[in-house]
Every structure is written in C-alpha cells, then in structure tokens.
Design a protein around this nucleic acid. Structure first.
Lengths: 155, 155
DNA sequence: CGTGAAACAGACCGACC
DNA sequence: GGTCGGTCTGTTTCACG
C-alpha cells in the first residue's frame, strides 16, 4: 500500500471538499503535472483511501431540516435484541448515522426529519419496533460546523 | 424553484450514494433519456438542492480512526465567549462537526483523531483555548450505520 | 419529455525522459 | 515525478418532434 505524503493530503483535502474539480485544476493547485496527479488519485482510489464520491444535498430544501441526536440505553444486551435494533436502524432511512458508544450511553443516533411532528412519528415507530430502556433526544438548533471531512493535517 | 418529484428523489438517492456514475447509467436507472436526466440534475444543482460533490475518505487509512462525541456546557453565555468558542471549533480541523443543541447540553462536537493520546492532546488544546463549564466525551466503539445521506421519503 | 447528432472537454493510459 | 500525444468516454448543446 502506498503511504500518504503531504502532497496526497493536499489532494485529499481538495477532493473531500469538492470532488467536481477537473484533473487540470487539481494538479495546478498541488503543483503537479496532470498525469502525476492523476496517478496519485488512482492509487488512492485503488488503495481504498478514497472510498467513493457522493453528492451533498441540502437538507432544508429536501424537507428534512430538523436534525436530532437520540441517546439510547439498551433494554437488555442479548444478541437477539441487538440484531433487532441493528435492523431497525438500518431500515429506517431517517436514521442518518448510528454509533455504539463507550461510557454509560449505549447508542447514539443522528436522525434527520422534517419537523417535530415527523420526529415524533419516527420516535413512535422506533419504540414500537425495539424495546428501549432509556431514550432521550436533543435537537440541533444550529450547525456551527458542518461536516468538512476528515482532518488531514499531520497531528 | 423546481419542486422535487419522485423521479428527482430517485436521482438524488443514487447520487448521494455514488456520484461517480455517468449520466448514461444514471438515466438508465431512473428510466429517463440521458438528456432529460441531465436537465434534471442541472436544475437541482442550480436550485441548490445538490450543493456539491465530495470524495469520501477512509478514516482508518488516514490515521484518524477514533471518533469521539464531546458534550459541552458553556462556561457562560456572553457573546464574547461564544465568538471564541466558534473560532476554536472552526480552526481545529479535528472537530469534524459542531452543533448548538436544545436541552441542557449546550454543544456537541464530533471529533476525529488518531487515538486516545491524540484525543487528549485535542482536549487539552480545547480547554486551553476556551473556558468550558462541563465537558464530557464518549467514544465511538462501532459505527452501526455510517452516513448514507438524507432520507428522501416522508416518515 | 424524447431523439439524434454534433462539438467539445476531459479522463485515461500508454511510452518515454 | 515530468512530458507528449494519443484514444475514447462522457458532458454539454444544438435542433426538432
């Protein structure tokens, strides 16, 4: 596997912000020839460093402008419950992200819905599907920093 | 502004998962001619429904495989503090997302770092920069559902 | 909205220094 | 890594039904 140098990082930083740039522009910005730049990009795609490309959509304009963080404590920890929980999370499209966490909260979901009413519908649906010991939600009032991708500066 | 119909939604669903598809493939998948499909995409880009394109990178391979959620209560709520906090959040690249929340937690950050030691460095840096009343972190043990984009169907 | 066709840009990929 | 130059796919616009 190729290891990532500073130039690769610059390429990645650009691409994770805007992958619609042409090779021409990209190579100029990192001071490489078009071909050298292209080879680096291809290498990183092959290595899986670049996993893919996605269109970034506007939540507001698509009618799901309310984001909620849902903190969950499991009712029990048997594999059967876990399986059901996972399935629910995978199935419901409004669950945008789901994490199993350390500490005393078991799971956190990020949920994207139209409004409070929609959230409540989601909530009812969730607890109908999976028994949950403790659920609490907090709503996103303001996005201070939106996902700009991974930190690529050497720490 | 164009309103989004079911076909548009199908286009968006495909693009937010993989925007590297060609117009040819995309149009086939939604049963439109290449041209008609292209017009829809351009319209949605112009309308800002499609905000851009991004490369999806592999956190593990880029040495920031540890994600933490940081829950913060502000030391005080004067505008001066807020300004400082915002600046810190915007500046530190390891803060991947930041939200002002409802309820009794004020802010939540998602932080992406190499490991625990790196997290501690981040933490020290943060509290050195901004006074914080209460900070607690929880670490992502497992990503159950990774960001697959917005839900494109009603609840 | 569909078709076809034409013009063009840019990706892609060899060979070579 | 740079350069050259080629092919070829895909985008972008036509005009028209």
């Amino acid at each position: 596997m190729t290891d990532i140098d500073a130039t690769d990082c610059r390429i990645l930083a650009i691409l994770q912000r805007d992958s619609s740039v042409s090779m021409e522009e990209l190579s100029e910005q990192v001071n490489l020839s078009r071909n050298a730049c292209w080879r680096r990009v291809k290498n990183m795609e092959a290595a899986g460093v670049i996993r893919g490309h996605a269109a970034i959509l506007d939540a507001e304009k698509l009618g799901c402008g309310l984001a909620a963080l849902v903190f969950i404590r499991a009712a029990n920890h048997d594999p059967d419950w876990l399986e059901k929980f996972r399935r629910a999370v995978a199935t419901i499209p409004h669950v945008v992200e789901a994490y199993r966490m350390s500490g005393d909260l078991d799971y956190m979901l990020k949920v994207q819905v139209a409004d409070m009413r929609a959230y409540d519908r989601f909530y009812q649906k969730l607890i109908r599907t999976v028994p949950l010991a403790d659920v609490s939600a907090s709503f996103v009032m303001e996005e201070i920093k939106e996902n700009r991708g991974l930190p690529l500066e050497p720490v």
